[in-house]
Simulated assay, not measured.
Amino acid sequence: MFGPEGPRLRELAVQALSSVEHGYDLLAPKFDHTPFRTPDQVLEAVAEALVPLGPFEDGLDLCCGTGAGVEALTGLCRRSVTGVDFSAGMLDVARHRVRPADGPGVAWVRGDARALPFRAAFDLVVSFGAFGHFLPRELPGLFAQVHSVLRPGGRFAFPVLAPPRPARPAFWALLGFDAVMRVRNALWRPPFVMYYRAFRLTDVLGELGRAGFVVELHALPGFGRRGDGSPRARLVEARRTQPAAGSVNS
């Protein structure tokens, strides 16, 4: 599962018993050598799907980690790309690994996705693999924050992979992981929020609509289709058209 440059079991155990922020600070130097890093195939498929929706001037990678998504955005945005994450360790790795020679300017901001320090500054926001760190009850606030940092007409985009079926070993692996995390969080503080099965597409689409987005789904063809014909991977494209209900931001 992990290569020779990845974290050892003891390091993962220490991370899992830390807070989310401190855990990722510890994992940051070896994060790119773990399965938790978004595969290049996903990054490339999302970038390809976004090209016809542009052009984009300013982009934001929400919960950017070590910067793989920021790197993808530099090929889509003409003026600036910003990565925001609450782990100082992850941002430090990102600053050293993403240094485009030309193209848009790149900035790194330490911040919480639930309280973003921007207002209507971007026409594209993306996120890769971060939503397991948010509880379902936090999604309305999270999506309201994203809505507030987008300009009218701006897009919030992220990939969603079809969940494995119960007949597949991956289904039981993810179920077991979530069960272990729930037990851990019931017995240990601070909590480490990381659940693979809590981000359900039907619920997410409803929350995006309530936040003021118009949503479209695009199949990512490089991942093929399941036996019932449904895509194995989709791009969620949520477009800001008006302020969210109760929002004072335009």
Score class of each variant (00 low, 15 high):
residue 112 D to K: 03
residue 117 P to I: 10
residue 135 L to F: 01
residue 167 A to G: 12
residue 183 V to F: 03
residue 118 F to I: 14
residue 3 G to F: 12
residue 223 F to Q: 04
residue 139 L to A: 04
residue 49 A to Y: 13
residue 153 G to H: 07
residue 178 D to F: 04
residue 94 A to F: 03
residue 11 E to G: 15
residue 124 L to G: 14
residue 207 E to D: 03
residue 105 G to T: 15
residue 176 G to W: 04
residue 204 V to A: 11
residue 195 Y to L: 14
residue 101 A to C: 07
residue 100 P to L: 10
residue 17 L to W: 04
residue 202 T to V: 13
residue 214 V to G: 10
residue 185 N to R: 02
residue 57 E to I: 04
residue 206 G to K: 07
residue 208 L to D: 09
residue 94 A to H: 06
residue 238 A to H: 10
residue 7 P to T: 09
residue 184 R to L: 10
residue 122 F to C: 02
residue 105 G to A: 15
residue 125 V to E: 05
residue 147 H to L: 14
residue 38 T to D: 02
residue 228 D to I: 13
residue 159 P to T: 13
residue 241 T to K: 07
residue 2 F to V: 03
residue 15 Q to W: 00
residue 150 L to V: 02
residue 113 A to T: 08
residue 10 R to Q: 14
residue 57 E to H: 14
residue 90 M to D: 12
residue 165 R to D: 06
residue 52 P to S: 10
residue 32 D to T: 02
residue 74 T to P: 05
residue 93 V to P: 07
residue 28 A to W: 05
residue 107 A to V: 09
residue 196 Y to E: 11
residue 131 F to L: 13
residue 108 W to T: 14
residue 129 G to R: 00
residue 117 P to T: 07
residue 225 R to L: 08
residue 228 D to H: 12
residue 174 L to Y: 05
residue 114 R to S: 06
residue 193 V to N: 08
residue 167 A to K: 11
residue 85 D to S: 09
residue 33 H to V: 08
residue 221 P to K: 05
residue 129 G to N: 00
residue 204 V to Y: 01
residue 178 D to G: 05
residue 128 F to I: 06
residue 244 A to D: 13
residue 161 L to C: 05
residue 171 F to S: 03
residue 28 A to H: 09
residue 198 A to V: 04
residue 247 S to Q: 08
residue 71 E to T: 07
residue 183 V to A: 01
residue 64 C to Y: 09
residue 226 R to H: 13
residue 67 G to R: 07
residue 168 R to T: 02
residue 53 L to Q: 12
residue 163 P to E: 09
residue 102 D to M: 03
residue 1 M to I: 10
residue 97 R to L: 04
residue 129 G to W: 00
residue 161 L to D: 04
residue 150 L to G: 01
residue 244 A to Y: 11
residue 193 V to Y: 03
residue 63 C to G: 14
residue 231 P to L: 06
residue 217 L to S: 10
residue 10 R to K: 13
residue 98 V to D: 06
residue 210 R to E: 15
residue 34 T to E: 09
residue 170 A to P: 00
residue 241 T to L: 15
residue 82 T to Q: 07
residue 118 F to R: 13
residue 118 F to E: 11
residue 117 P to G: 14
residue 102 D to T: 01
residue 182 R to G: 12
residue 185 N to D: 06
residue 101 A to V: 08
residue 58 D to A: 15
residue 132 G to W: 00
residue 197 R to C: 03
residue 248 V to A: 15
residue 130 A to H: 02
